[in-house]
Write a protein that binds this DNA or RNA. Structure first.
Length: 419
RNA sequence: GUGGGCGUAGCUCAGCUGGUUAGAGUAUCAGGUUGUGGCCCUGAGGGUCAUGGGUUCAAAUCCCAUCGCCCACCCCA
């Protein structure tokens, strides 16, 4: 039997209402904040991600779905959205039409990792990018958007973690300090972290390995060494969040694995989704646009994992969606009336009702059971004595009440059902 | 890439230390009188016990391999 590829999943009809609901909340809240939707291709030239995300990152180093197409171009399925949005922003000169572009998206993403709880190889993210303003108002705004969406979904066990990485010059300065601090302890670090000592020293903070945490316990913190401007911006973000009633905690060890971040970074984590607890992550990236060849412009954004959010909703039992139902089910009392019944359903559907009938030539009892299973609000009997005398029998399934209508009173039936 | 756990009907699972035709619940289908659902009752269909090999008189049950799934590490949403 051919099965879905490792790390991919079918989203079956039973799960669709949850997805649609999530999508509707996302769209509604982004709209209220005046973000415009953008859709980009699922694949890009590999170089975009290599340059945008950073050659040293795990995503680019070992997780991308990359292949050579028939024209010898190296193509990569998008592992994240920021690089693509920025590419589109530059390519279409969106920054010249208006200074600030507030964009949001919903899209599948692809990363070749080992699957686990809350992690797949094809997964879905929604998120946003606000391009063209360095104002901390936007840093606060996107956190508020993300938090509002999760709150609207009813999630309670969530936490906002906030940090600032400063600008590159202050960060480089700090790296020297950290490197000096760790100099004598390198031997005590794990093998991975020893590599990071040279490649990306900040990320030693991410390590969950005990010996690393022990060493890092007393390490100097980047937050204490960031430049004056970053510090002021960070203070304003905190003030704005506090004013907006968003609970957060500053986590000076929050280092994100993507190279492009500057100043504000944040994550929203859940205690209900297993080890991969980040539902949402993002931050500011003031140099990325220039780095990808655009006119220098600042940006800030986040991405949220839809599977993880739905998992959290499931585990917190927050989504009490009403069961699906249909308006009306047509019951054939006589087999000879199959064609007439078929025309009747079509008429009802033209009147914008959700209408269904039996396709399996089953007994009246079986048809009734089916109508019940589909949560039909009404049932219309076609056939029998009343049909011979020009009548149709309409039954209200919740009250059990039945009423006869003339064949010409079709619109009356429709009106009654629509009430 | 590394480590741990698991693989029995569509789904959730039982099947003890190997012993005759592999079970339950649920779902599906049919029926419970002639044209009417939900509850209830009766019955039916549905399994190469992941795959391949081995041990044994005998394997779903023990051993090995392969594959798959799950979880964790790394990292991320």
């Amino acid at each position: 039997m051919i099965k879905a590829v490792t790390g991919t999943k079918d989203i079956l009809p039973a799960e669709i209402p949850g997805w649609k609901y999530l999508e509707s909340v996302v769209e509604r809240i982004f709209r209220s904040f005046n973000y415009k939707e953008i859709r980009t291709p699922v694949f890009e030239e590999t170089g975009l991600f290599a340059r945008g995300i950073g050659e040293e990152t795990d995503i680019v180093g070992k997780e991308m779905y990359t292949f050579i197409d028939r024209s010898e171009t190296s193509i990569t399925l998008k592992p994240e959205m920021t690089a693509s949005v920025v590419r589109a922003y530059i390519e279409h000169s969106l920054g010249k039409q208006q200074q600030l572009n507030k964009l949001y998206y919903l899209s599948p993403m692809f990363r070749q990792e080992r699957p686990q709880a809350g992690r797949q190889r094809q997964f879905h993210q929604f998120g946003c990018e606000a391009l063209g303003s360095a104002s901390p108002l936007l840093d606060a705004e996107i956190i508020i958007v993300a938090f509002s969406i999760l709150k609207e979904l009813g999630l309670k066990d969530i936490k906002v973690k906030l940090n600032s990485l400063g600008v590159p010059s202050s960060r480089e300065n700090y790296k020297k300090i950290l490197r000096e601090f760790l100099k004598g302890s390198v031997k005590k670090l794990s093998e991975d972290s020893r590599k990071r000592y040279d490649a990306n020293i900040l990320r030693i903070f991410d390590s969950k390995i005990e010996c690393d945490q022990e060493v890092m316990k007393d390490a100097p913190l980047l937050l204490d060494f960031i430049d004056e401007e970053s510090k002021n911006d960070f203070e304003l973000v905190k003030t704005l969040l506090t004013q907006s009633g968003i609970p957060f905690e500053v986590d000076p060890r929050l280092v994100r694995g993507l190279d492009y971040y500057t100043k504000t970074t944040f994550e929203i984590v859940s205690g209900k989704v297993g080890a991969q607890s980040a539902l949402c992550g993002g931050g500011r990236y003031d140099l990325l646009i220039e780095q990808l060849g655009g006119v220098p412009a600042p940006g800030v954004g986040f991405a949220a994992g839809m599977e993880r959010i739905l998992l959290a909703c499931e585990n917190e039992r927050t989504l009490n969606l009403p069961p699906e139902s249909i308006d009306i089910y047509i019951i054939k009392l006589d087999k000879e009336l199959t064609a007439a019944a078929f025309q009747t359903v079509l008429e009802l559907r033209k009147s914008r009702l959700t209408a269904e009938l039996d396709y399996l030539d089953r007994s009246v009892k079986a048809q009734m059971r089916e109508a019940n299973k589909l949560n039909a609000r009404f049932v219309l009997f076609v056939g029998g004595d009343e049909y011979k005398s020009g009548k149709l029998n309409l039954k209200n399934m919740s009250t059990g009440e039945q009423r006869l209508f003339g064949m010409n009173d079709f619109q009356q039936i429709v009106q009654l059902i629509k009430m």
